[in-house]
Write a protein that binds this DNA or RNA. Structure first.
Lengths: 99, 99
DNA sequence: AATAATTATGCAAATATATAAATATATTCT
DNA sequence: AGAATATATTTATATATTTGCATAATTATT
């Protein structure tokens, strides 16, 4: 029962992290970023067939809440998981929604 | 990359499940429901020191989205995890917010 | 320096969510 | 049936989120 030792601010932070993930498109984004993969904004916006600005928005939210990290290389910005264990969350939820 | 095989409705369902969890009080509730524990509404509302109606509301959301299950026994309703692997999500997020 | 390519931001309208108070429903006990 | 206990629902207000468009900012190329 580790979470109960968390102070309210840590609870809040955990909630914000999950809230960032809890969106269909953002789950889809994370689905493409397993195994340490790094993708650019354009690659993601083409993969998922969503607007560029919308894509950037979603990536910004995921980065802001500590789910993703980014690294600029020339014209491109690569996004990737900050903690690779975060893939487990997507795995777990997708398994639980299969039944 | 299992999640990418999910249809949009499944993605939506996964997002709803995570959205249900992504709230400070609801994370705290789940923190008390690990290891197959079952708790009543009153127990939770006293443990967390929140309004009865608010507690019931949060539990209703968790149940509606498939995170919890409930079982009435007399005057009491016991709530517990539907898939015990869901504890991993809380564990994972709390670990990731520690650093 | 002008253009193209990539990414990020500001804005606004529609939609969704949170909270608490009041009330309703369900069950047990006398 | 009536009172007490436990849980659920309704309602209203406040707040937050999503989305796409328009635009700005950054970097590379010619």
């Amino acid at each position: 029962m580790k979470i109960n030792e968390l102070e309210p601010e840590k609870l809040e932070q955990a909630a914000n992290m999950l809230k960032a993930i809890a969106h269909p498109m953002r789950i889809a984004i994370l689905g493409h970023l397993d195994d340490g993969k790094k993708l650019t904004v354009t690659e993601i916006h083409e993969l998922l067939n969503i607007e560029q600005s919308t894509t950037s928005h979603h990536l910004g939210i995921l980065k802001d809440k500590g789910v993703l990290q980014s690294k600029r290389e020339g014209k491109n910005t690569y996004y990737f998981l900050k903690h690779c264990s975060l893939s487990n969350i997507v795995d777990c939820v997708s398994k639980c929604t299969m039944g």
